[in-house]
Nucleic acid binder design. Structure first.
Lengths: 112, 112
DNA sequence: GGCTATATATAGATTATCTATGGATAGAAA
DNA sequence: TTTCTATCCATAGATAATCTATATATAGCC
Protein backbone atom coordinates (compact mmCIF):
# COMPACT_ATOMS: atom_id res chain seq x y z
CA UNK A 1 0.00 0.00 0.00
CA UNK A 2 2.24 2.76 -1.20
CA UNK A 3 1.42 6.03 0.50
CA UNK A 4 2.41 8.77 -1.86
CA UNK A 5 1.54 11.93 -0.01
CA UNK A 6 -0.52 13.22 2.85
CA UNK A 7 -2.54 15.54 0.64
CA UNK A 8 -3.53 16.04 -2.93
CA UNK A 9 -1.39 19.06 -3.80
CA UNK A 10 -3.38 22.16 -4.57
CA UNK A 11 -6.24 21.30 -2.27
CA UNK A 12 -4.94 22.49 1.10
CA UNK A 13 -6.37 26.01 0.92
CA UNK A 14 -9.74 24.58 0.04
CA UNK A 15 -9.64 22.19 2.99
CA UNK A 16 -8.67 24.93 5.43
CA UNK A 17 -11.29 27.37 4.17
CA UNK A 18 -14.01 24.74 4.33
CA UNK A 19 -12.99 23.68 7.82
CA UNK A 20 -13.12 27.26 9.05
CA UNK A 21 -16.48 27.80 7.37
CA UNK A 22 -17.88 25.64 10.15
CA UNK A 23 -16.45 27.88 12.86
CA UNK A 24 -13.37 29.53 14.34
CA UNK A 25 -10.47 27.19 15.14
CA UNK A 26 -6.79 27.36 16.00
CA UNK A 27 -4.16 25.82 13.72
CA UNK A 28 -3.79 22.61 15.63
CA UNK A 29 -7.57 22.24 15.67
CA UNK A 30 -7.74 22.73 11.92
CA UNK A 31 -5.24 19.93 11.37
CA UNK A 32 -7.10 17.61 13.72
CA UNK A 33 -10.43 18.41 12.14
CA UNK A 34 -9.20 17.67 8.61
CA UNK A 35 -7.63 14.44 9.77
CA UNK A 36 -10.75 13.31 11.55
CA UNK A 37 -13.32 14.33 9.00
CA UNK A 38 -11.33 12.56 6.28
CA UNK A 39 -11.14 9.36 8.34
CA UNK A 40 -7.36 9.72 8.73
CA UNK A 41 -6.70 9.79 4.99
CA UNK A 42 -5.64 13.44 4.87
CA UNK A 43 -2.87 14.57 7.21
CA UNK A 44 -1.79 18.20 7.26
CA UNK A 45 1.81 18.51 8.43
CA UNK A 46 2.75 21.56 10.48
CA UNK A 47 5.24 22.58 7.82
CA UNK A 48 2.37 22.75 5.33
CA UNK A 49 -0.29 24.14 7.64
CA UNK A 50 1.35 27.23 9.11
CA UNK A 51 2.75 28.58 5.84
CA UNK A 52 -0.69 28.02 4.31
CA UNK A 53 -2.35 29.95 7.13
CA UNK A 54 0.09 32.83 6.54
CA UNK A 55 -0.81 32.77 2.84
CA UNK A 56 -4.52 32.88 3.57
CA UNK A 57 -4.14 35.66 6.15
CA UNK A 58 -2.10 37.69 3.68
CA UNK A 59 -4.74 37.17 1.03
CA UNK A 60 -7.32 38.54 3.43
CA UNK A 61 -9.34 35.35 3.53
CA UNK A 62 -8.77 34.78 7.22
CA UNK A 63 -8.32 36.87 10.32
CA UNK A 64 -6.50 35.72 13.43
CA UNK A 65 -6.71 36.39 17.12
CA UNK A 66 -4.67 35.10 20.06
CA UNK A 67 -6.74 33.51 22.78
CA UNK A 68 -6.63 30.74 25.32
CA UNK A 69 -7.54 27.32 23.95
CA UNK A 70 -9.95 24.81 25.45
CA UNK A 71 -6.93 23.28 27.16
CA UNK A 72 -5.78 26.57 28.58
CA UNK A 73 -2.85 27.21 26.26
CA UNK A 74 -2.06 30.25 24.13
CA UNK A 75 -3.38 29.62 20.64
CA UNK A 76 -4.08 31.63 17.54
CA UNK A 77 -7.69 31.35 16.42
CA UNK A 78 -8.53 31.78 12.75
CA UNK A 79 -11.85 32.99 11.36
CA UNK A 80 -13.05 33.15 7.78
CA UNK A 81 -13.59 36.68 6.46
CA UNK A 82 -16.33 37.67 4.08
CA UNK A 83 -13.95 37.50 1.10
CA UNK A 84 -12.65 34.21 2.45
CA UNK A 85 -16.13 32.78 2.29
CA UNK A 86 -16.43 34.00 -1.27
CA UNK A 87 -13.07 32.42 -2.10
CA UNK A 88 -14.26 29.13 -0.68
CA UNK A 89 -17.06 29.13 -3.22
CA UNK A 90 -14.59 29.79 -6.04
CA UNK A 91 -12.27 27.03 -4.89
CA UNK A 92 -15.06 24.51 -4.53
CA UNK A 93 -16.30 25.11 -8.05
CA UNK A 94 -12.77 25.02 -9.51
CA UNK A 95 -12.08 21.81 -7.69
CA UNK A 96 -15.29 20.20 -8.86
CA UNK A 97 -14.57 21.23 -12.42
CA UNK A 98 -11.11 19.65 -12.23
CA UNK A 99 -12.43 16.44 -10.73
CA UNK A 100 -15.13 16.21 -13.36
CA UNK A 101 -12.55 16.74 -16.11
CA UNK A 102 -10.25 14.08 -14.69
CA UNK A 103 -13.23 11.77 -14.43
CA UNK A 104 -13.90 12.27 -18.12
CA UNK A 105 -10.31 11.37 -18.98
CA UNK A 106 -10.43 8.29 -16.77
CA UNK A 107 -13.59 7.08 -18.47
CA UNK A 108 -12.95 8.34 -21.98
CA UNK A 109 -13.75 5.91 -24.80
CA UNK A 110 -11.38 5.01 -27.61
CA UNK A 111 -10.78 7.80 -30.08
CA UNK A 112 -11.39 7.65 -33.79
CA UNK B 1 -13.53 33.25 -14.06
CA UNK B 2 -10.18 32.85 -12.43
CA UNK B 3 -8.16 30.10 -14.02
CA UNK B 4 -5.73 28.90 -11.45
CA UNK B 5 -3.81 26.15 -13.16
CA UNK B 6 -3.95 23.87 -16.13
CA UNK B 7 -3.89 20.72 -14.04
CA UNK B 8 -4.57 19.52 -10.55
CA UNK B 9 -1.02 18.97 -9.32
CA UNK B 10 -0.18 15.37 -8.63
CA UNK B 11 -2.51 13.97 -11.26
CA UNK B 12 -0.39 14.24 -14.40
CA UNK B 13 1.17 10.79 -14.20
CA UNK B 14 -2.26 9.27 -13.75
CA UNK B 15 -3.60 11.11 -16.79
CA UNK B 16 -0.69 10.04 -18.96
CA UNK B 17 -0.83 6.42 -17.87
CA UNK B 18 -4.57 6.25 -18.43
CA UNK B 19 -4.28 7.86 -21.85
CA UNK B 20 -1.64 5.36 -22.90
CA UNK B 21 -3.70 2.48 -21.56
CA UNK B 22 -5.92 3.06 -24.57
CA UNK B 23 -3.04 2.68 -27.02
CA UNK B 24 0.40 3.85 -28.07
CA UNK B 25 0.76 7.58 -28.68
CA UNK B 26 3.48 10.18 -29.15
CA UNK B 27 3.88 13.05 -26.69
CA UNK B 28 1.99 15.58 -28.70
CA UNK B 29 -0.83 13.10 -29.15
CA UNK B 30 -1.00 12.48 -25.41
CA UNK B 31 -1.38 16.21 -24.76
CA UNK B 32 -4.08 16.53 -27.41
CA UNK B 33 -5.92 13.49 -26.13
CA UNK B 34 -6.01 14.76 -22.55
CA UNK B 35 -7.15 18.18 -23.69
CA UNK B 36 -9.90 16.76 -25.86
CA UNK B 37 -11.19 14.09 -23.53
CA UNK B 38 -11.40 16.64 -20.71
CA UNK B 39 -13.37 19.06 -22.91
CA UNK B 40 -10.50 21.57 -22.87
CA UNK B 41 -10.41 21.84 -19.09
CA UNK B 42 -7.04 20.10 -18.69
CA UNK B 43 -4.09 21.42 -20.65
CA UNK B 44 -0.71 19.72 -20.41
CA UNK B 45 2.09 22.16 -21.22
CA UNK B 46 5.15 20.80 -22.99
CA UNK B 47 7.28 21.85 -20.05
CA UNK B 48 5.22 19.54 -17.85
CA UNK B 49 4.68 16.75 -20.33
CA UNK B 50 8.18 15.89 -21.47
CA UNK B 51 9.78 15.83 -18.02
CA UNK B 52 6.87 13.67 -16.89
CA UNK B 53 7.43 11.24 -19.77
CA UNK B 54 11.12 11.02 -18.79
CA UNK B 55 10.08 10.27 -15.21
CA UNK B 56 7.72 7.52 -16.33
CA UNK B 57 10.26 6.01 -18.71
CA UNK B 58 12.87 5.98 -15.96
CA UNK B 59 10.42 4.32 -13.60
CA UNK B 60 9.92 1.59 -16.20
CA UNK B 61 6.24 2.32 -16.64
CA UNK B 62 6.59 3.29 -20.29
CA UNK B 63 8.74 2.32 -23.21
CA UNK B 64 9.45 4.54 -26.17
CA UNK B 65 10.16 4.07 -29.83
CA UNK B 66 10.92 6.54 -32.63
CA UNK B 67 8.63 6.24 -35.60
CA UNK B 68 6.97 8.32 -38.25
CA UNK B 69 3.74 9.96 -37.14
CA UNK B 70 0.43 9.99 -38.99
CA UNK B 71 1.52 13.33 -40.41
CA UNK B 72 4.84 11.99 -41.62
CA UNK B 73 7.05 13.54 -38.95
CA UNK B 74 9.60 11.93 -36.65
CA UNK B 75 7.90 11.24 -33.37
CA UNK B 76 8.56 9.27 -30.23
CA UNK B 77 5.79 6.80 -29.48
CA UNK B 78 5.15 5.75 -25.90
CA UNK B 79 3.64 2.46 -24.80
CA UNK B 80 2.55 1.32 -21.36
CA UNK B 81 4.61 -1.55 -19.93
CA UNK B 82 3.22 -4.31 -17.80
CA UNK B 83 4.40 -2.60 -14.61
CA UNK B 84 3.03 0.66 -15.98
CA UNK B 85 -0.39 -0.89 -16.24
CA UNK B 86 -0.09 -2.09 -12.69
CA UNK B 87 0.96 1.38 -11.58
CA UNK B 88 -2.07 2.83 -13.30
CA UNK B 89 -4.26 0.70 -11.06
CA UNK B 90 -2.40 1.91 -7.98
CA UNK B 91 -2.70 5.54 -9.01
CA UNK B 92 -6.39 5.25 -9.78
CA UNK B 93 -7.18 3.79 -6.39
CA UNK B 94 -5.00 6.34 -4.58
CA UNK B 95 -6.67 9.13 -6.47
CA UNK B 96 -10.14 7.85 -5.71
CA UNK B 97 -9.28 7.49 -2.06
CA UNK B 98 -8.06 11.10 -1.96
CA UNK B 99 -11.12 12.42 -3.72
CA UNK B 100 -13.41 10.50 -1.43
CA UNK B 101 -11.56 11.88 1.61
CA UNK B 102 -11.78 15.45 0.33
CA UNK B 103 -15.45 14.89 -0.36
CA UNK B 104 -15.93 13.86 3.26
CA UNK B 105 -14.23 17.05 4.46
CA UNK B 106 -16.32 19.17 2.12
CA UNK B 107 -19.53 17.64 3.41
CA UNK B 108 -18.55 17.09 7.04
CA UNK B 109 -21.14 18.03 9.65
CA UNK B 110 -20.46 20.22 12.69
CA UNK B 111 -18.27 18.64 15.32
CA UNK B 112 -19.20 18.11 18.94
C1' DG C 1 10.90 15.24 37.62
C1' DG C 2 9.63 13.23 33.33
C1' DC C 3 6.25 12.10 29.86
C1' DT C 4 2.55 13.11 26.55
C1' DA C 5 -0.46 15.99 24.17
C1' DT C 6 -1.18 20.47 22.83
C1' DA C 7 0.33 24.50 20.33
C1' DT C 8 3.13 27.72 17.06
C1' DA C 9 6.65 28.49 13.82
C1' DT C 10 10.69 28.44 10.56
C1' DA C 11 14.59 26.65 7.56
C1' DG C 12 15.77 23.82 4.04
C1' DA C 13 14.96 20.15 0.79
C1' DT C 14 12.20 18.17 -2.55
C1' DT C 15 9.02 17.80 -6.13
C1' DA C 16 5.87 19.28 -9.61
C1' DT C 17 4.30 22.41 -12.64
C1' DC C 18 4.61 26.53 -15.56
C1' DT C 19 6.94 30.01 -18.53
C1' DA C 20 9.87 30.74 -21.94
C1' DT C 21 12.67 29.36 -25.36
C1' DG C 22 14.92 26.78 -29.00
C1' DG C 23 14.98 23.71 -32.94
C1' DA C 24 12.97 21.18 -36.80
C1' DT C 25 9.61 19.78 -40.69
C1' DA C 26 5.18 18.92 -43.48
C1' DG C 27 1.83 20.90 -45.94
C1' DA C 28 -1.20 24.58 -47.14
C1' DA C 29 -1.70 29.17 -48.62
C1' DA C 30 -0.19 33.29 -50.77
C1' DT D 1 9.03 30.53 -53.27
C1' DT D 2 8.13 32.36 -49.26
C1' DT D 3 5.42 32.39 -45.35
C1' DC D 4 2.37 30.66 -42.13
C1' DT D 5 0.28 27.16 -39.19
C1' DA D 6 0.25 22.92 -37.07
C1' DT D 7 2.94 19.28 -35.66
C1' DC D 8 6.66 17.43 -32.91
C1' DC D 9 10.67 17.21 -29.48
C1' DA D 10 13.18 19.02 -25.60
C1' DT D 11 15.49 21.80 -21.90
C1' DA D 12 16.55 25.74 -18.61
C1' DG D 13 14.96 28.42 -15.13
C1' DA D 14 11.41 30.24 -12.23
C1' DT D 15 7.74 29.48 -9.18
C1' DA D 16 4.87 27.28 -5.93
C1' DA D 17 3.45 23.84 -2.78
C1' DT D 18 4.38 20.40 0.24
C1' DC D 19 7.29 17.65 3.38
C1' DT D 20 11.08 16.80 6.77
C1' DA D 21 13.24 18.25 10.48
C1' DT D 22 13.85 21.10 14.11
C1' DA D 23 13.05 24.47 17.83
C1' DT D 24 10.33 26.38 21.48
C1' DA D 25 6.91 26.30 25.11
C1' DT D 26 3.29 24.79 28.54
C1' DA D 27 -0.63 22.13 30.83
C1' DG D 28 -1.63 18.25 33.19
C1' DC D 29 -0.79 13.61 34.57
C1' DC D 30 1.94 10.05 36.91
Amino acid sequence: MAKKSDLLPGTLDLLILKTLARGTLHGYGIALSIKRSSDDVLTVEEGSLYPALQRLLLAGWLKAEWKMSETNRRARFYTLTRTGRKQLGVEISEFEQMIAAIGRVLSAPEEA
